[in-house]
Computed example of a mutant assay.
Amino acid sequence: MRQQFLSTMLACALLLPGGTASAADSVRLKDIGRFGGWRDNMLVGHGLATGLAGTGDSQRNRATRQSLANVLTQFDLIIPQDQIQSRNVAVVMVTATLPPFARTGDRIDVTVTSAGDARSLLGGLLLMTPLKGPDGRVYALAQGPLSVGGYKYGLNGNVVQKNHPTVGGIPGGATIEVAAGSEVLRDGKLEFLLAEPDYTTASRIATAINGGFSEPVAAALDAGTVSIGVPAEWRGRLVGFMTRIESLNVQPDQRARVVVNERTGTVVAGADVTLSRVTISHGELRVSVVTDYLVSQPVLPLRSGPGVRSEVVPQTRIDVAEPPAQAVQLGLGSTVGDLVRALNRIKASPRDMIAILQGIKAAGALRAELIIQ
């Protein structure tokens, strides 16, 4: 397992022979950012799931009884809340994501979660539920049968459960009633937003865009925003202008990072992470404490005497083993891949690898950002 881990990390750290990343790696602009105004919108609603086979909310849930009474009043049925007794209904919260440029009549997926004490939503039907945005306006209506993908059955204290039966979904369960406006052109300019802000990458994007047109139209405003002016000849062909920009290639700059997950013992490092001159001494001190319990029995003539009993006598021994420390020395310009190979030779464990990286960072020899999860 130890050998497999170190070999896996070595393969991740060395993208190319010699541990150097390719300088010709370039990506499309649409893969590293987006235009301003292009965003999703969150929708949420409160509704009822009916048709549950006795697994709905209990009578203690007043919100369920009040919601069901409100629904029945729309059909000219006036029933007091205290007279509503049903375990086939559950109050639920409904969420959805309204994509950009969605049109009226389009259908989107919804997620339904129990908001009460229902045991399962299996077999339930969501009643028509309005989905509202942050401005309180209704943008979609959701309704349909729930797809749970789990179950929960119990009898006499025995419970069998698979997945989470109190969460379900309805594919295409909501119909958009009001389209969300997306304004990408403001004052005759577009804004390109980087997914990972970086000043060098933003400058390269502006240079690539200016090189793709006959006039300078782009300028980097900050590490995450590039302002793009629309030339006069492209004003009536905005879609084509944006398509041409998205298709441009640029080489993004990458910050050297080493990600460490202490819970799983995982270390992920980029190929361009280098080390300064450093010497690592790795050793282990193993202390083993073993206790044996012996029972002392009284001799036969004294067994029946007053106050005579068996006695448990612990015997403890301590073993200390300190193997000689093994040293690893790395020269200037060594990479994390070189470090992995060196630690692989001395058979260091993944936990030791994490501790060594933390020590190298504290010593100032790791030329990267160390992220501990």
Rank of each mutant, 00 (worst) to 15 (best):
L366T: 02
Y293G: 00
S288C: 05
N156T: 14
P323K: 00
Q85E: 14
R62W: 09
V27M: 14
P17F: 00
D338E: 01
N261D: 15
Y139M: 05
L52S: 01
D40Y: 11
I228Q: 05
V308N: 09
N61C: 14
I372F: 06
V250W: 10
V89H: 01
G105D: 02
E183N: 14
G47I: 06
I356P: 14
K132I: 13
K30I: 12
I78K: 15
V112L: 04
E262Y: 07
S58K: 06
I205K: 09
S334Y: 07
R65Q: 11
V299D: 14
I346P: 10
T113L: 08
A53Q: 12
A69V: 05
A220D: 06
A269F: 04
D106H: 07
P350M: 04
H46K: 15
I371R: 06
G337I: 00
R367A: 13
L146D: 00
G105M: 04
K152I: 11
G229W: 05
G123N: 06
A269E: 03
A220Y: 02
R277Q: 09
V27F: 12
I245G: 01
I176E: 02
L121P: 04
Q373L: 13
S310R: 14
E262W: 07
L43D: 02
G229L: 08
A220V: 01
A69D: 03
G333T: 07
W38S: 14
S227R: 07
T274D: 08
R119Y: 04
T129G: 06
T279L: 11
T95Y: 07
T95S: 15
I79Y: 02
A115S: 13
T50W: 03
T175S: 12
P145M: 01
K361G: 04
A195E: 14
L339V: 01
I84H: 08
A256M: 05
L190M: 06
I346S: 10
G265W: 03
Q329F: 09
G169C: 09
A140G: 04
L275A: 09
V112H: 02
M9G: 09
K361I: 01
Q161F: 09
F241Q: 10
A342T: 01
T95V: 09
N88L: 12
D338M: 01
Q143W: 02
P306F: 03
L343M: 15
L52V: 00
H282K: 11
Q83C: 04
R204S: 00
G337H: 00
P165K: 00
L146H: 02
A140Q: 03
Q143L: 04
L131G: 07
Q254E: 13
G173W: 00
A142V: 02
L357K: 01
A355C: 05
V340E: 05
P306C: 01
S22W: 08
N261G: 09
A321G: 09
M353C: 13
E233Q: 15
T73M: 14
L248Q: 10
D25N: 11
K189I: 08
T266G: 07
E215W: 07
A368I: 00
S182C: 10
V110Y: 01
A202K: 04
P197M: 01
N88M: 11
T200E: 11
V178C: 03
P100N: 02
G305F: 04
E215P: 06
R286N: 05
G124E: 02
R345D: 12
